[in-house]
Computed example of a mutant assay.
Amino acid sequence: MGCYFRAKKVFWSSFIVVFMSSFTFAHPDSGKFLSDLGIDVFPDRAKINISLQEYTRVISDFLNSRDMSFEPVPSLRVYKLDNLIKHHRPQQHIKMIFPIGITTDQIESASLRLLMPPQQENPTIANVQIYQILGTRRKRLLTEDTFNLSRNLSKWCEVNVTEAVASWTEGSKNLGLELTCESCSNNLNPEIAAITALVHPQGRRIKRSPKKGRTDCSARHQTGKGKKKCCRHDMMVTFTKLGFNEMKDIVEPKNYEAGYCHGMCPPNYNFATNHSRIQGLMHQLDKSYFKQFKNKTSIVPKTCCAPSKLGDLEILIVSSHDPTKLKVEKWHNMRVLECACS
Rank of each mutant, 00 (worst) to 15 (best):
M1I: 08
M1F: 08
V10G: 06
S14W: 06
S14E: 11
S14R: 04
F19Y: 14
M20S: 10
M20G: 02
S30C: 13
I39T: 04
D40T: 10
D44K: 13
R45L: 14
F70P: 05
E71Y: 05
V73C: 08
Y79A: 01
L81S: 05
N83G: 05
K86W: 12
H88D: 13
I94M: 15
Q106L: 06
S111P: 08
L112S: 07
L112W: 03
L114G: 08
P117S: 12
P118L: 08
Q120S: 11
Q120E: 09
I125E: 15
A126G: 15
V128C: 14
I133N: 00
G135A: 03
T136E: 11
L141Q: 01
E144R: 05
F147R: 05
N148V: 02
W156R: 13
C157K: 09
V161S: 01
T169G: 03
G171N: 09
G171D: 05
S172G: 03
K173R: 09
K173G: 00
L188V: 11
N189P: 12
P190V: 10
T196D: 06
A197L: 10
A197G: 14
H200K: 04
Q202T: 12
R204K: 01
P210A: 03
D216K: 01
C217Y: 03
H221W: 13
T223N: 10
G224L: 01
G226C: 07
C230N: 12
C231S: 04
H233E: 09
D234F: 02
D234R: 07
M235W: 00
E246T: 07
K248M: 13
K248F: 15
P253H: 06
C265F: 09
P267M: 09
P267C: 12
N268F: 08
Y269E: 14
N270Q: 14
Q279E: 04
G280K: 02
S288G: 06
N295C: 11
S298M: 12
V300S: 09
T303P: 15
A306M: 15
P307T: 03
L313S: 04
M334W: 02
L337K: 05
A340K: 09
